[in-house]
Each structure stands twice: as structure tokens, then as C-alpha cells.
Simulated scan of single mutants.
Amino acid sequence: MSRRPSTAEPASAPVITEEDLAALDTSEGGETLDRPEEIVNLVAEKAGAALAILTTAVIVVLVTVAVVLRYFFNSSLPVASEGPTYLFPWLIAGGAIVAQATRGHIAVDVLVGRLGGRAHDRAQIAIWAFSAMLLGYLTYLAVYLIPPMAAQSTPIMGWPQLGSFGAFILMVAVMTLQAAARTLHYLRHGAPEKNEAPDA
């Protein structure tokens, strides 16, 4: 017995729109704002960016020189061998300062992202005040470590390790000021809501 072909029209496949994808997005916060909210973070952003760019350029030059000497001349240059390692903490410090200035750091704010109005402001103020105190304590510990770090030197060039460790001291000190400035700014003007541009 032959089957009759079905006359029913095949069901059309559902179309997923941009709105559907946006509704599925459960990520909260962590977005990078275009500019810092106040002058302290604005200056820190520019200074951190300059530090990161300069350090990156010097590291690239030194690594290139080291590779060329090693593979083409079977030789080495001590400063090219040890310089990138010595300067790398300064690159990290510059990047961390820029990330904090623009709120581009990784944030897990599932709870805070769901708050609104005054509750959101209070949560942000509390978070940044705690961050300022924690970073201030890290700055104290870093300064406390200056004497033992000053007594150490690098194995190749004999440079003081304090020159490299100084990047950490600078980073936590500047980030302390950044967090404190943001706390005061939020106390005066309130914290920006998600996807809201900060007022300068």
C-alpha cells in the first residue's frame, strides 16, 4: 500500500533574534567604561597607560636583541637577557592601574548588579571603601618589605631587586588612591548604574 504524501506544510524553524540573545545574557557588570569618573582616576589612567606602553616597547627591543644575538651570532647580551624580566612587573603595574581607572578589571557582582537606587550606591561605596583599606594595607606591607628587597640583587646584572619590586609598591599605592577617590566620588555623586556613562 502506498502512502499519500503529507499535505501539511512543514513547520518553519524558529528565528533567534538579537533580543532573544540579549535576554539570555545573564552576565552582570564588569563592563569597561569609556573614561574614569573623576580626576584622580583620569590622571592614573594616563600615567598607567604611558608606563605600560613605554615598558612594553623597551621589553620588545630587549627581547628582539636577545633573540637575534642568540640565534644568529651565538652570543648574548646580559642586559637583554635580564632586562625583560626586571621590567615585566612595571608592565603589569601600568596595566593594573589603567584597569582600575576605567573599571575594566574582572568583577563578579551578581548581587550588586541586581541592586538599584540607594541600595546600589551604598553597596558600591562599601565595596570601594573596603578596597581602599585593603590596598592601603597591602601598601603598608610592601613598604615593610623594602629593606629585605634592597639587600637582594639580580643574578646577572647585579641590579637591586628593589627596582623591580618597586613596581608592586607603586601599583598598590596608586590603586589605594584610586579606590579612595572613587569612594569619595560615589559618596558625593552616587554610583553609575550598569551601562550608564559616568559623570566627570
Rank of each mutant, 00 (worst) to 15 (best):
P14Y: 02
S27P: 10
A96E: 00
V43E: 04
W90L: 02
P192M: 02
Y144W: 04
M175N: 13
V65F: 12
P10N: 03
A151D: 13
A132I: 01
L111A: 02
F130Q: 11
V63D: 06
V15I: 11
A50M: 12
R182Q: 09
P192E: 06
S12I: 11
E9Y: 10
P84V: 13
M133N: 12
L62R: 08
T176W: 02
Y137C: 10
Y186T: 04
E18L: 05
T26A: 11
L87V: 09
R114L: 12
A52N: 14
L51T: 12
T7D: 08
A181Q: 02
M149G: 00
V15E: 10
M175S: 08
P36I: 05
F88W: 01
L62H: 00
L21R: 00
S6N: 08
A49P: 08
A123D: 03
F88Y: 06
V98Q: 03
S12Y: 08
L162R: 14
I125G: 00
R3G: 12
P14C: 01
A80Y: 07
A96R: 00
A80W: 08
V68C: 09
T26L: 11
L69C: 08
P78I: 09
A132N: 05
Q152H: 15
T55V: 14
I97Y: 04
A99I: 14
A107W: 00
L33W: 12
I92Q: 11
W90F: 10
T7I: 02
T64L: 07
N74I: 07
G117F: 14
L187V: 13
D20G: 05
A126C: 06
F73R: 02
N41R: 10
E38M: 00
A66S: 08
I169H: 07
L134A: 11
G113A: 15
L177G: 15
G95V: 12
R4T: 08
E196C: 06
V98F: 03
P84M: 11
H189G: 00
L87Q: 07
S81H: 14
W159Y: 14
G136S: 07
